[in-house]
Design a protein around this nucleic acid. Structure first.
Lengths: 329, 329
DNA sequence: TTGTACGCGTTATCAT
DNA sequence: ATGATAACGCGTACAA
């Protein structure tokens, strides 16, 4: 059932039908009503491909994440999807698994499918090859990096002040008389660098000791945190507080601390990052930096939509995180 | 840059270019090579809309979930996306928030965008209105319900034997000499009903007491479990074990138990469902039913793909879950 | 107010 | 092996 069939049945031209469908001017109320009846009767919907061929838009955007199973990314993607859904757009979901090749494949695919815009979630995508591809091939398609910084000309980002977030943790622990503080880092991304920089700066500001053994790099996830604590203890490192770069890593760390008979927060204070559900599940509940996922996601969505509508848009938005204090410190 | 431009530059017809692009027969190696050079030079990609107009397919599927922030749904959606991505398909993500109207809107949208198939995640979608819409309007579009049962003619489902899963919990607790067992139910879905039925059947089989006070209905999430335990204690109910219908609910329940000074598992044994990350984060680690999310997701994806390729497909696949025994029982 | 005719970029059919 | 042309379904400039 296409526009011709409708036109024939209504005894009008396809132009008239098209006008009715798209609510255009210059239609007599009578004709309009007649056509609408037929439209409804057959439950007609225009062919999206033919439409796209004319308008070169199909009202959809691409959302690229490393892994939607990560609650942080899931939250962001959820908010973006809901916001864009209200605007009549669909969201195409892509999970790259953190592989650069995959990222570029997905970008290519999204461009072929002629999405109206793209949101990358996480500073992982501020990767050299991705940047190169974007600046070379994604020229006239709006692209926004949510929760991270994209070092490309004419690019747009919404990010959280990670530097500030971690330094808040140091402030808080210092106020509680901690001086031997460890930082557990779990990603070599832009965001990861900012967090580490915030740690170092805040420690130095209070004249607290920082050296190679105060910062430990571990794999992502529960196991990473577990391993970090194991290593600290194996190395005989002396510490009274640990700042983790992610909640889930902190959960793993606390698990190991408990196994070793160290009490949290009496023997060791612990902070996390993301203020996720894990922070509330954790026993004791985790002091964590709230990095305002929903806010970042919504602002990213709004930014992309403004770009699609070619409004004037600022290139970078930075959000201040909050420290949520719970039982673990 | 379209197929005409390429043809002109290569000094051949568009037919020839099309043949090269689609790897068709009857092309001389020489011509093929010549065209491929030009193709590569301009980084040409065919217009997906024009293609769709001919083939009425754009190689994409719709994945409909209640809320991608739920780890269980995120896992399923992730696996489906990865599997279909390997087959050259894109995934359009939809979050209905559990609202029937939204579900139907999304289904309509997906049909308009001419996806090649649809996967619904969770037995929530076995809703009367959704069923009605599907059987009326989604007639010639393959649709699969992952992790639940869809009571519609000509429909396809992959599901876990929830009945068996919960009855395993009862068996396990009974073997540990528990007789006063509570079941906490958190969803009125098909899956929820099966779980409850499994509980009742297994209890009766061992001659254990079951009545209205043995089964408590609570809202989803951490708070639900917390409230459930609060209610049990308020009511002065005597119990030695609790079976929760979801891990996260169990986590909430354990939290409240601890606050009340009841030890897990010494005073109260606890089981969860889903074998999620929460089960491992929990202290003590949670005995939980592994409902094989990835398996269900992969089988659903395979089923849908087979349907798209119009292969013969069985209408229902049922998976047996496993009980993973940890410290909470 | 309404209709005719063309273009969008591709694939399929039928000639050559 | 290669090419000309129709068809897919819609929007729109222009004509009536």
């Amino acid at each position: 059932m296409n526009i011709y069939d409708i036109a024939r049945e209504a005894g009008v031209s396809i132009t008239t039908v098209s006008r009715v469908i798209n609510n255009k001017q210059n239609i007599s109320a009578k004709t309009k009503e007649k056509v609408e009846t037929i439209l409804k009767k057959h439950n007609y919907t225009p062919n999206a491909f033919a439409r796209g061929l004319m308008s070169s838009s199909i009202k959809s955007i691409g959302v690229v994440t490393v892994d939607i199973r990560d609650p942080h990314y899931a939250n962001t993607a959820f908010t973006i999807e809901q916001d864009f859904s209200k605007l009549g757009y669909n969201v195409i979901l892509c999970n790259t698994g953190g592989k650069t090749d995959e990222s570029i494949n997905y970008l290519r695919m999204l461009m072929e499918k002629k999405v109206d815009g793209i949101i990358l979630i996480g500073s992982v995508f501020n990767d050299q090859q991705v940047r190169k591809y974007v600046s070379k091939h994604v020229r006239n398609l709006p692209i926004v990096l949510a929760n991270g910084y994209l070092a490309v000309d004419n690019s747009y980002s919404v990010l959280v002040d990670d530097f500030y977030g971690i330094s808040c943790c140091v402030e808080h622990l210092y106020a509680k008389k901690h001086t031997k503080i460890i930082y557990i880092k779990d990603a070599e991304t832009y965001s990861g660098e900012r967090k580490q920089a915030g740690f170092i700066a805040a420690m130095k500001e209070h004249g607290l000791p920082v050296d190679d053994t105060s910062i430990i790099k571990v794999p992502r996830g529960l196991e990473g945190g577990y391993m970090a604590v194991a290593k600290l203890v194996d190395d005989g490192k002396d510490f009274s507080a640990i700042i983790f770069g992610e909640d889930i890593t902190a959960v793993g760390g606390i698990k190991k601390l408990k196994e070793l008979g160290r009490r949290v927060p009496e023997d060791v204070a612990v902070t996390g990052f993301n203020n996720s559900t894990f922070a509330k599940c954790c026993d004791p509940e985790l002091t964590s930096v709230d990095n305002k996922v929903e806010t970042v996601a919504s602002l990213s969505a709004k930014m992309l939509h403004d770009l699609i509508e070619t409004k004037n848009v600022s290139s970078t938005i930075m959000i201040r995180p909050d420290l949520i204090i719970r039982k673990s410190t």
